[in-house]
């Protein structure tokens, strides 16, 4: 059951991701990306990371994707016109991606420890929001506040960048 779900969600995620790369229209690509994020959230849930799954849906599938679509609308982007495919670029990109996959498969295949299945939790009813909260505010309080400053800086940066008389 669990394995089947894993494969279903994995397949959805990967297929949507491939869609992102291959759809010609930006809007289709963005919708495909939403699907990929939702699939990923489901994968997080199969890993008992409910909080991260929810955040994934809220932040990515919600906020980030709205932003993407908004920009697509704002720039009035249409589907790319067909340009001659550059063989060298495709070959180079394919080589890098293939090389990465080769390294990854070799690493994963060579480590028997990775073949373990999920160990049983001490208590199947995980209260992981509380746990993440504890970890966040106890162990990572300072980084948490720093990240708040980062968001503020990003906000200010965006405002500055968006001003029309930017020279």
């Amino acid at each position: 059951m669990s394995l089947a779900l894993f494969w279903i969600f994995a397949a959805i995620t990967l297929a949507s991701a491939v869609g992102v790369v291959f759809f010609r229209s930006p809007v289709s690509a963005a919708m495909s990306l939403v699907m990929a994020f939702v699939g990923l959230a489901a994968l997080f849930v199969t890993l008992d990371a409910f909080f991260i799954g929810v955040v994934q849906v809220l932040v990515y599938a919600g906020a980030v994707m709205v932003l993407f679509l908004f920009i697509i609308m704002l720039l009035d982007l249409r589907a790319d016109e067909r340009r001659p495919v550059k063989l060298a670029a495709w070959a180079g990109g394919g080589a890098v991606v293939g090389g990465f996959m080769a390294v990854l498969v070799q690493v994963v295949g060579s480590l028997p420890a990775l073949q373990q299945t999920k160990p049983a939790l001490a208590n199947p009813a995980v209260n992981d929001v509380a746990m993440v909260g504890f970890a966040l505010f106890r162990n990572f309080n300072l980084p948490f506040q720093v990240i708040g400053v980062l968001l503020l800086v990003a906000t200010i940066g965006v405002v500055v960048l968006s001003r029309r008389e930017l020279k």
């Binding site: 180079g92 990109g93 080589a95 890098v96 090389g99 990465f100 390294v103």
Partner: peptide, 13 residues
């Protein structure tokens, strides 16, 4: 990006 990726993968290898 290609140079960077190729370099990173080469380094990993």
């Amino acid at each position: 990006a290609f140079f960077f990726g190729a370099g990173a993968i080469g380094l990993l290898y």
